[in-house]
Structure formats: structure tokens, C-alpha cells
Design a binder for these strands. Structure first.
Lengths: 138, 138
DNA sequence: TATTATTCCTATCGATTTAATAGGAATTAC
DNA sequence: GTAATTCCTATTAAATCGATAGGAATAATA
């Protein structure tokens, strides 16, 4: 299951990407527009900012803005920030690899074999989908 | 993350598929061979039996066996039994569709767009991978 | 028929994760 | 100096996960 955190995060990014103006978008505005609990959204946007996806302006009339153009923001990066590793098991993760305790021969492990394929297939989707693809009708 | 339930279930299926003989395989044997808590494995194999993937023989010298040949068992079916719906959100699930509460226009929803692609890509992998692919070296 | 070994079933438990809330500090525009 | 906003930390309630416990039902075999 996709976490609410990721769902909200994606919606918020889309909301910001769809803004015409160049002024920062406020959390309250996004929360209202996308039906997201404001305090929860605050923490999510904070995470995205710390990861370098969003920038922020503090104080009155502050808010969040994209650090790059929507077409430059790919879902592999975003998903890693919001949802964690793309691989379903650590033993096939490119960025967070960990050996299984139990597994004797990784190459012979059926789970490993299957999850390698799932990882590749998902990575392909995420890498080739940008925030622009999600934000604008084609 | 892949649940332990699914991981153990896949390993157990592979273990059974690799058996030469035609005699039922006992839970204890699989648990020992694959380092899986026996009681936990019991409940998993029960689930697989109720779903029609495995058959069982009760009583002394009983155990579990595949209801079909490994080449006939595809991962889409197995994953749905063990891990639940393949889609990451109900609004893109083919077998368990549910409308989002919040979402006004499904076609315009960024999450929807992305998750459709993920579903298709995963489904493609799962449908085209059989237990035989996972169980035997090529 | 008694014994033994196995699947089958239900219930429970502890730990972890998730989703959300609370309260206020720090910062900035005006 | 005031109002509005992001930023930070802590807490909580509910759900899920992984595992365990105990025993009923069933079947082989001596």
C-alpha cells in the first residue's frame, strides 16, 4: 500500500507545480485545496525541503516552491524521499543494499529473483515519469 | 516492503516445487530447511491451500503439495493471496477497485496517473513469472 | 483400537509503523 | 511591534505485522 504520506506529498507537489505564479505556495492553501490535514502536510513538506526537492521562504507570505522545473523532477527521487527504498527487499536495493540474514545463496533465492525484476520494472517507471507528466494533461 | 508472510510463502512454494518425489512435504521440513518459524509457516501454507494454490494431506505422513505444475503457477495469483492487491492504491486496482473519498476527478489525479503505471508494470512482471522460473536455474 | 504424527483452527500478544495532533520557537513582511 | 508563516519536537491512538500458544481434527500404522 502507498502511504498517506506519499499520497499527500505527491498531491502537494502537483499542486505547487500547477501554480502559475512564482510566489511561494502556503501549506494552508495546499491543505485546503487537496483535503490534507495541515499539520501532517507541514511535516511532509519539511521532509521534501530537507531532501532538496522543495525550497521554502519563512515568515509572513512565506511558503514552498519547487527547486527545479517539474520536468526535471523525477519520481524515483521523490518516491525514495517519501516512501523509502524502491526495492521491496533490502537484498535487491541499489541504494540501500543489505544482505539477508537467512539467505545462503542469493542467486538461488526465489524471492531475490522475483524482486530484482519488480525493482527494475518499478525503477523504469519512476525514473521516466516526471512531475510534469503528473501535473499537466497531455 | 515485502511482508515476511509473502517472503516465507514464496520460499515455501519454491521448496515444494524443488522436491523430486510426489509425496506431500511437511511444514516442519520446510520450516527447518528455510529457517522459518514453524507455527507462522503453518498459517501461511493454510492460506495458500484455501486459495487453491496448495493441496494438503492430513494426519500422519501428511503434508502439502502443489495443485498445479510450477510452470502453471504465476506470481500474480500468488502475490494476491499472500500480499493482497497488486495495486498500491484501491482506485487503480483491477480486482479490488474503490473510489477515493477525496479525489474529485480521477483522471486528473497525479497519484492515480502514477499508480496506474506502477500497477501495469508490476502486473506484467507477476503475470509472466511462474514458480518454475523462480525454482530452477536457467 | 491405541498411538503417533500431522494438518487445521482460533485466539492472543508484543512490537512496530502509521496517521495525526499539540504546542510553541524562529523567522519575516509590513 | 504585530501578524503570519515555516520549523521543530514530542506525543498519541489506531492499525498492522510477526510470532506464539494450545489444542481439535484427521489419518497411518502397529
Amino acid at each position: 500500500m502507498l502511504s498517506k504520506k506519499t499520497k499527500y506529498g505527491l498531491k502537494a507537489l502537483t499542486f505547487i507545480a500547477r501554480q502559475e505564479d512564482d510566489v511561494p505556495v502556503q501549506v494552508g492553501e495546499i491543505a485546503k485545496g487537496e483535503q490534507i490535514p495541515q499539520k501532517f502536510l507541514e511535516s511532509i513538506l519539511l521532509t521534501l525541503r530537507k531532501a532538496g526537492v522543495l525550497g521554502s521562504k519563512k515568515g509572513k507570505y512565506g511558503g514552498y516552491y519547487l527547486r527545479h522545473t517539474p520536468a526535471e523532477i523525477n519520481m524515483a527521487d521523490v518516491m525514495r524521499v517519501l516512501e523509502g527504498p524502491i526495492a521491496m527487499v533490502p537484498c535487491v536495493s541499489l541504494n540501500f543494499y543489505e544482505k539477508c540474514d537467512d539467505c545462503v545463496d542469493e542467486q538461488e533465492c526465489s524471492v531475490h529473483k522475483l524482486m530484482i525484476q519488480v525493482r527494475d520494472s518499478n525503477l523504469n517507471v519512476f525514473k521516466n515519469t516526471t512531475l510534469a507528466d503528473l501535473s499537466f494533461s497531455e
